[in-house]
Amino acid sequence: MFNLFRNEWRKLWAKKSSWILLLIAVVFAGLTAWGMHGLGTGINSTVTSDSLSGASTGAKAFLTIFSSGSSLVSIFAIVMTAIIITEEFAKNTIKLLLTRPYNRHQILCSKFLAALAYLVVSLVVVYLVAILFTGAFWGFGGLNKVVDHGMNTWLYGLVTIAIYVLGNLFYLSVVFVLAAGMRSQGLAITFSILLEFVLSIVTQLLTVLMVNKQWWWIKWNPFNLMSYNPLVGNLKGMPAAASLSGWGWAIGLIIYIAVFYFIADYIFNRRDVSLS
């Protein structure tokens, strides 16, 4: 199994696109830092929550830079995940994998792990880049101060990575379903990216429905779980019945990830490798 993962990992980084996409995320994070520093704007209107109002300028800058880079990483991880499967079918290299002494569950699992590893590595790179730019422009001192939940910026950033990873894994599992069933690389990528944009609209609609009809169970829909950040907490004014806890959020997402993964696994296992 390790060999399968190692092969996927080699293939992933042997492609120029993997490096280019990561570089774009890094450049975007750098431009954000440069823009904030050069223009002296943006820090107070960052993605940080009210609870971070007392955080240092450096901490806020870091979170803004990290957030801008990681938003691109989310999209790029989706693209790479779609490519990891569909390219094998589009270029017919899948037959090289499926005629080796491993079952299809193992093949798919190695691809999922490679996609997960790409996401984690990309987020860690953006994290390090955000740290470097913050240190260069605002100094490293502010990063040691407590930001929220008793965590300094370094730790807060790492926890944010873990939250992003879990949230994005849900996307990746959905992308796996699309990619396992599609032959067209372009279509799988388009649908996958579209999904991310559709998500925000669906989340808003479902929230309105939940509040108006008082159907609090709707809070367990995957889109709501995706938009929830346990570090930020629930929206102000949200009734207790509609609120989520950190554990509820994590368990809910893991269940959804597992469900979508098993659907992808079922499709991948049943699929005939048809004629080219």
Partner: peptide, 11 residues
């Protein structure tokens, strides 16, 4: 096995 045209990872 070599089934149909041989395809490899071109890169």
């Amino acid at each position: 096995a070599m089934i149909e045209a041989p395809e490899f990872y071109n890169y």
